[in-house]
Computed example of a mutant assay.
Amino acid sequence: MNVEKLMKMAGSVRTGGKGTMRRKKKAVHKTTTTDDKRLQSTLKRIGVNAIPAIEEVNIFKEDVVIQFVNPKVQASVAANTWVVSGTPQNKKLQDILPQIINQLGPDNLENLKKLAEQFQKQASGAGAAEDDDDDVPELVAGETFEAAAEEGQSQTS
């Protein structure tokens, strides 16, 4: 055998320099299952319960839909926490919209139309004209706040 190769091998198993003890066993790296265990213990502490028979979960983010098919869904209403675990698929809203409309009933379809109208108003800037209602109204000429307050007090008395 090659002496240099033996020296390299011998040097790689030592924990320190010359004359130190050799490692007894090879270090095993831990996997990420500890994170999963920690997450599951935290969820158990919160008190989540599994919700069975959910075939699909869709999460809407702007024009992208994150879709989970046959996910594991857990929820805790008291902690306002929902956990969806499974394999996600990113899809465009235009591609998945016909599937979603078929799943909705007539009541939810009306709600979806209202939401779509609100988003269109916000996107087109038409909602900005309606937001002017929140501004402070202008004073009527000749009236002051003090006079209006005194009138209000005299009417309630």
Rank of each mutant, 00 (worst) to 15 (best):
M1N: 13
M1L: 12
V3P: 08
E4W: 04
K5R: 14
K8N: 13
A10Y: 00
S12Y: 06
V13S: 05
G16I: 02
G17H: 06
G17F: 07
K18T: 03
M21L: 08
R22E: 05
R22A: 10
R22M: 09
R23A: 12
K24E: 12
K25A: 13
K26A: 14
V28W: 01
H29I: 13
T32H: 14
T33Q: 14
T33I: 09
T34A: 07
T34V: 08
D35M: 08
D36G: 08
R38N: 06
R38T: 07
L39R: 11
Q40G: 06
Q40C: 06
Q40M: 12
L43W: 03
L43Y: 02
K44C: 01
I46C: 04
G47A: 05
A50N: 06
P52Y: 03
A53G: 07
A53D: 13
A53F: 08
I54S: 07
E55K: 15
N58T: 07
I59V: 15
K61E: 14
K61W: 09
K61T: 15
V64K: 15
V64L: 15
V65N: 05
V65T: 03
Q67K: 14
Q67W: 11
F68R: 01
F68W: 01
V69P: 01
V69A: 10
P71N: 09
K72F: 05
Q74D: 13
V77F: 11
V77N: 09
A79L: 11
A79T: 07
T81M: 12
V83Q: 07
V84D: 03
S85P: 02
G86C: 08
P88H: 02
P88M: 03
D95R: 01
I96D: 00
I96M: 00
L97G: 00
L97R: 04
P98C: 07
P98Y: 03
Q99V: 05
I100Q: 04
I101W: 01
N102C: 00
N102M: 00
Q103N: 09
Q103Y: 04
G105R: 00
G105S: 01
G105T: 00
G105M: 01
P106S: 10
D107C: 00
E110I: 15
N111Q: 05
L112E: 09
K113N: 10
K113Y: 11
K114M: 06
Q118C: 01
Q118A: 06
F119I: 04
K121M: 08
K121E: 03
A123M: 02
A123I: 00
S124I: 04
A126T: 05
G127L: 12
E130W: 10
E138H: 05
V140L: 08
A141M: 11
A141P: 05
G142S: 03
G142F: 04
E143K: 14
E143I: 09
T144L: 03
A148R: 09
A148N: 02
E150W: 10
E150T: 11
Q153H: 09
Q155P: 07
Q155Y: 12
Q155A: 15
S157K: 13
